[in-house]
Amino acid sequence: MTSTILDRDTVPLSPPSGEDLDRLLLIRHFELTLLRLFGEGRLNGTTHTCLGQEYVPVALRPLLDDDDYVFSNHRGHGHFLARHDEPHGLLAEIMGREGALCAGVGGSQHIYHRRFLSTGVQGESMPVAAGVALSLKRAGDGGLACVHIGDGTWGEGAVYEALNLAALWRLPLLVVVEHNGIAQSTPTTAQMSGTIAARAAAFGAAHHRTDSIDLNLIRLELAEPVRRVREEGRPTVIEFVTRRVGPHSKGDDTRSAEELTRVRAADWYVRYAAAFPEVFAAADEAQRLRMARITDEVAARPPSVWRAAP
């Protein structure tokens, strides 16, 4: 039930669609904007950017239906923006401005919009997603619940309980693991014994591992596993071998310069830019400008109002 593909860091990338490239770059510039705003003291609290991992939710985009649920975590801006092209609402949420998705109450890591929901406690959404998947299964319309977790999340017992339940009850649960090799500051090697594949196998859940960053290739690989989740109620763990290019939060990266150089060289942004320089540069500039406009517009809004405050 486990399949693995070879490292494709050196394999030529297939051309991305304009829409895909725009979405990837929107998320990149959204995250860079947040770090800049924090640096300028214009954001409250904290944030966790998905720099380097933007391609994961973008690759999944066409594989998910409108009626599917997506559960996200602390590092969820990319998950949201891949699902909903509403950067204004998300930025307003993070900045506490009018038009915020959740009135500014949830902030960066607590978003509920249509069928997208994020929470800030590791592993907490897995049991909830199992419950949603039970309802979807009963409805019989082929919907699934997709949960984004990280390699560090496997330290939480809730993950195992929920995976057991989902496999036992044959629930349409898609677990997307962004295995970026580091949990906050702790390398995976210092916080995980064994493998994610073996964990999935132990519960009789399917597992598929990919280290590709090629959107088209990933979709080809995942179309069948996702179809089986949907149609056969077959819980599946998709393991993306990925890299966190940025810090865990803000300026808290303790990795060595050598390691960061290696991580950055494998960044999808660098590789797509090198593979398709002209189309990439144009799209990059367009999304940078779009994000700059969005930022100016949202920053000028009045503070959000929590009308439903208890």
Partner: peptide
């Protein structure tokens, strides 16, 4: 439904059902 011995998950699954309209 009888669940495994997983109190956190059976409550979480209940919350998930509730979110989904049950």
């Amino acid at each position: 439904l009888s669940t495994p011995l997983s109190e956190g998950t059976l409550v979480g699954a209940g919350a998930g059902l509730a979110l989904a309209g049950e």
